[in-house]
């Protein structure tokens, strides 16, 4: 029952993040959605990913969004979308129904859970993933430097 409430709240936060007029409201709803996804992952039995999602998804990413909106400015003006709304709905529904038709019949059996420690799998069997994550984090640091560096340049230019 609790899972269903969390799922409903998650979907509500996602819809509000898309529908919100202001970017800051959108970022706050996204943080709420991240926190609920983290709670749901914990209920699914993945506490390690839940903790990382809570700290990174709801914490770090929200701070970056607020920082970027602060620099770029919140534009409340509503522009008409490129695609007509009914066409977008039809495309989304087609994608979801196709995926559901393929996937849902395979979810009728649940295998018994074999508990295997995450650290063994991550550090010994999937070493390439760890190396890839290090490269990603390096790229992310460069991106943050790009975000911050131009601010300093502008401040120097204006002063």
């Amino acid at each position: 029952m609790l899972e269903l409430i969390v799922i409903a709240a998650m979907i509500f936060c996602a819809v509000m993040a898309i529908r919100a007029q202001r970017l800051l409201t959108s970022a706050i709803y996204l943080a709420g959605c991240s926190a609920l996804v983290a709670l749901f992952l914990y209920q699914l039995g993945a506490p390690e990913i839940a903790v990382i999602e809570l700290s990174v998804g709801a914490g770090l990413v929200t701070i970056l969004f607020v920082f970027a909106i602060n620099i770029a400015g919140d534009d409340p003006a509503q522009h008409p979308p490129i695609l007509p709304k009914p066409m977008a709905w039809v495309l989304v529904l087609m994608a979801v129904v196709t995926a559901a038709t393929i996937l849902l019949p395979n979810y009728d059996t649940i295998l018994p859970l074999v508990s295997e420690p995450l650290d063994d799998t991550l550090w010994e069997k999937r070493t390439l993933d760890v190396i890839l994550q290090s490269v990603f984090i390096f790229a992310g640091v460069l991106g943050v430097l790009n975000l911050l560096g131009e601010t300093t340049y502008d401040q120097e230019k204006h002063s």
């Binding site: 993945a46 990913i49 998804g57 990413v61 859970l113 799998t121 993933d129 990603f136 790229a139 991106g143």
Partner: peptide, 30 residues
């Protein structure tokens, strides 16, 4: 991963997705 009883492998792959997603957000915002 939970339904196929391979939760550890799924978590390690989800960790990679999470890191990549965060970096995509950072670069997109920059």
């Amino acid at each position: 991963g939970k339904l196929n009883s391979q939760l550890a492998v799924a978590q390690s792959m989800a960790l990679t997705v999470l890191v990549a997603d965060t970096i995509v957000a950072v670069l997109g915002l920059a």
